[in-house]
Design a protein around this nucleic acid. Structure first.
Lengths: 191, 191
DNA sequence: TATTGACGAACGAACACTTGTTCGCTAAAC
DNA sequence: GTTTAGCGAACAAGTGTTCGTTCGTCAATA
């Protein structure tokens, strides 16, 4: 089923550029030199394509967090989480864009599943930050807001990241880590 | 033309919930106890509604920045800009959501105009930060990234802000200011 | 080696429906 | 008595999807 991956990838690009509802099945097919009806040899519905993209991105985020050793000290854990998060976005920008932008157009049963996965993913960040505060590494006035602040700064990346631009993943990760750690009143100087 | 404002406001809510393309003219009309064709006594096209919302939000952002005295010291200026930005989002969440989410669906001539307004607006932030760095109030490794980081943290607010929630504008503004200033290595302690 | 048959990818045509928009009409308000 | 907000009907175009069919590939059979 190599062809299905082609369709999903092309759809991801078009969904990113024009949005899910503004992209027709015939648009996707045309971009692959096919006719609209031909896609249905490989997919069940347009919605299935969206699901494939969004669920795949959700899984990518989750796996990248689960790959981090849970016994790392919280500052190193947070640093690794930031790096992993940025990597998922940068490595597949169209998928990440569709994930953030179009997940809401899935039917309720499926979108709820995505919400669950996202909450689970975010809990890795929350816990690292919580541990860091407990151990006196971080210092914040409002822990709940600190989490939102950090997710905000990270999630908006897909809006402005330019693969052709100057910022490579490693530098991006360093800059993010630095500013986030400062906003958390990180005590150690060398991280 | 009071009726036109009703239409725009209702459309703003629906666009926020379902997106521009997934909301039909008949949907908007039905929510106002009207028929689709009736809207055309007050509007020229569906696109005009979107323009009204997006351009209005862009103007709101721009005016809120222009109302800040330009001779304020950069730290106070940035603090005021943050407060003003949050205020625009919180005061009209649907418009802000549509502004961030759906501006791209305007035809190119109009979307370019929005981009210009947004760039102009962002330049107020950039300049305050730049001045702050020059005067030694802020200290960052990469000024360009610092700008992106701050906009990211601020712009994502519309994704999670809950008007029924606990966070009021003033507290929100304080928390944002605190974390952003720390991320900028702000030297003075009492701001 | 030649023939058969199954398979799967791609197609054109058609489907029921929705889209944004127009137009001529009605009924009420000034 | 003029204006106008609202309506129903209709429009051309586009939507996702289904259907029967074609055509090339490849393995098994004769």
């Amino acid at each position: 089923m190599d062809r299905k991956a082609d369709i999903t990838q092309m759809a991801s690009q078009l969904f990113k550029e024009r949005g899910y509802h503004a992209t027709s099945v015939r648009d996707i097919a045309q971009a692959l030199n096919l006719k609209g009806s031909s896609l249905y040899s490989h997919i069940a519905s347009k919605e299935e394509i969206l699901w494939e993209i969004v669920e795949g991105a959700a899984r990518a985020f989750l796996h990248s967090a689960q790959a981090i050793p849970p016994n790392l000290p919280p500052d190193q854990k947070l640093k690794a989480l930031i790096h992993a998060h940025l990597n998922v976005i940068v490595a597949n920008l169209p998928d990440a864009s569709v994930f953030f932008h179009e997940w809401q157009f899935l039917p309720e049963t499926l979108s709820r599943e995505i919400t669950l996965k996202r909450d689970h993913y975010e809990s890795y960040f929350r816990q690292a930050i919580h541990e860091g505060i407990e151990q006196g590494l971080f210092q914040v006035q409002d822990e709940h807001f600190a989490n939102l602040f950090i997710f905000s700064s990270l999630n908006w990346l897909y809006q402005w990241y330019d693969p052709e631009g100057l910022l490579r993943l490693e530098q991006l990760s360093n800059l993010y880590t630095q500013m986030i750690f400062k906003s958390l009143n990180y005590q150690k100087l060398n991280h």
